[in-house]
Amino acid sequence: MSTTVTPKQPTTAEPASAAGPAAASATFPAAAASAPAAPGAPAASRGQVDISTVRKSFGATEVLKGVSLSVPPGGVTVIVGPSGSGKSTLLRTINHLEKVDGGYITIDGRLVGYQVRGTKLHELREKDILQQRTDIGMVFQNFNLFPHLTALENVAEAPLVALRPGDPRRRTTAEVRARALELLDRVSLKDRADAYPRQLSGGQQQRVAIARALALDPKILLFDEPTSALDPELVNEVLDVIRELATSGTTLIIVTHEMGFARDVADTVVFMDQGQIVESGTPQDIFTNPREERTRSFFSKVIEPAFNI
């Protein structure tokens, strides 16, 4: 699968890309992003994510050093890399939980968190940012379920309050409830709908969190190490749910240390190190014959010999 955008529209008022391709990895030209909000955008583009030379610093340390990445709609992209390489930070810029210092991100051609005014990108008002986020579900390492709400209430909360009047996804309370139950059923937890998160196992909590992220019918789902906080025997029940989602047409971007799972489910594997994308490609490319020395040495440490045939 190609990692650059194939159907390139005629660039109208393209925001000047902040940095040249120098910082970006060779595989990802900075021009990867498509034009912002072309009105006649092809109907098929649901959940196309383009990250263009994104930079981010915390204080003096630069955590993202000009990262560019294109994720095709419906694809499954797995990001791997050593601790501290900036994987979570990159993921969090996609729904503007983290503001970028340079570069930009578009989803289906629409800028995330900003709008073009003249030659400047102005940050959107909070209301509009929240609205954009309803298209992007996120699943956290430590679940972050609301502990004082039942599983059902956790799933139903956002559909009840996050959608503007006129949004086609708005439903009545009864419909939201029915749909929430349906989602809980999809993660095999219908019978625990009235349980509070602390009454559930870690694996069950994470499955509720996935149902919650699905409740707004997002185009894109972001997973930040969804199984890292789980006991080994609970990992698979969560991975199975994600596997099932991988075939659903939603764009998935997954940060994980589960290499076997990555090899199974990913269309594209992206290897990050020190705030840069070192290389990316099919699981076959990255796991069995990586081009870069850094990639090779990372995998030789994390993958058990039995797996690395």
Partner: peptide, 24 residues
């Protein structure tokens, strides 16, 4: 993390305070 999860779901600020943070 509670505020972050609520913000990621697009829940409005006032609702985040009254429904998510205050009860806890």
């Amino acid at each position: 993390g509670q505020l972050e999860a609520a913000a990621a779901l697009g829940i409005p600020a006032w609702r985040r305070s009254t429904r998510i943070v205050l009860p806890q």
